[in-house]
């Protein structure tokens, strides 16, 4: 449904998106997981026509965005990261305006606007100005504005940033409803939990490159079911490799004078032997965090840093 092939986007010397390729199928959610500045919004911008891709091809519902941009845009709905609403207009007027921008008119537009107002829980406030709404209500309306024309591909650019937990749950429910109806969703986020609970497939993006992609199971297998042991303190990196040699299945993911991250199976049961070897290697451990295998530990393994760093 949505195919991105060898997409590259450059701002001057900065390579914002570096040869990204992925395919998001119909009726499924493809998550792009990565820290801020990784290139997620730039990728979405290239897909929806906000930015001109430097190279690569993008097809939406089989339509090439470069050769038939208007048709491709008709097949897409975009929920931007920031609110994009006219605060002086009412909820209904906003929906009518954006529906009109996609060529909808008259009864068809009005009935669809009413239907969406009911779905987002604003059926009782259609004539209220948006500026009178709470942040969560605005988020839901912002989401609904992208659904008016029944897009086949929905692009969601970190729609839950700064949203309270209750509204977040409501938004994610709306996304799932769309998927049930056969919509293909591209969902960017830097919340690992969101990607794990919502997405059918996940692509991990960092510094413009897609460094891994697959189903959650496929990605976990990349980590080899190993736990992550993150430590802070004083370390001598040169002595660590030699000191940990007796533990053959331990991998040093990150090693600096102050931080050490190890990947190893059954870490909780092997802590005493690990600490003993570290002490011999001259390490002074002050704080320890143990992480079960998940997307974040995979991200740390792949990039050597946490998602929120």
């Amino acid at each position: 449904m949505l195919t991105v092939s060898h997409l590259t986007k450059r701002y001057g010397d900065l390579l914002a998106v570096d040869d990204i390729s992925f395919n998001a199928p119909e009726g499924a959610i493809f998550g792009l997981l990565g820290p801020n500045g990784a290139g997620k919004s730039t990728t979405i911008g290239c897909i929806n026509g906000l930015l001109n891709p430097g190279s690569g091809t993008i097809t939406v519902a089989g339509i090439d965005t470069a050769t038939r941009p208007r048709d491709a845009k008709r097949a897409m709905g975009v929920v931007p990261q920031e609110l994009a609403l006219y605060e002086d207009l009412t909820a209904r007027e906003n929906l009518q305006y954006w529906g009109g921008a996609y060529g909808m008119r008259g009864v068809q537009l009005n009935s669809r606007a009413d239907e969406l107002l009911a779905r987002i829980g604003l059926a009782d406030r259609p004539r209220d100005q948006v500026k009178k709404f709470s942040g969560g209500m605005k988020r839901r309306l912002n989401f609904a504005c992208a659904l008016l024309h029944r897009p086949r591909v929905l692009l969601l650019d970190e729609p839950t940033v700064g949203v309270d937990p209750q509204s977040r749950v409501a938004l994610l429910e709306l996304v799932r409803d769309e998927v049930v109806q056969g919509t293909c969703v591209l969902y960017t986020t830097h919340y690992m939990e969101e990607a794990e609970t919502l997405c059918d497939r996940v692509g991990i993006i960092d510094r413009g490159k897609l460094i891994a992609q697959g189903t959650l199971g496929e990605l976990r297998r990349l980590l080899g079911e190993r736990d992550l042991l993150q430590m802070t303190g004083a370390f001598e990196p040169a002595r660590l490799a030699e000191g940990l040699r007796p533990l053959a299945d331990v991998e040093i993911v990150l090693s600096t004078a102050e931080h050490l991250t190890l990947a190893l199976p059954n870490a909780s049961q092997r802590l005493p032997s690990v600490f003993a070897l570290l002490q011999v290697a001259g390490a002074d451990v002050r704080e320890t965090t143990l992480k079960q295998p998940n997307l974040e530990s995979l991200f740390i393994k792949l990039t050597g840093k946490a998602l929120r760093e």
């Binding site: 906000l50 208007r70 845009k73 931007p80 920031e82 609403l85 954006w98 921008a101 996609y102």
Partner: peptide, 11 residues
């Protein structure tokens, strides 16, 4: 308001 960016995604 973000509406300019959103408008760029319309046909």
């Amino acid at each position: 308001m973000g509406t300019l960016a959103r408008a760029s995604g319309t046909p």
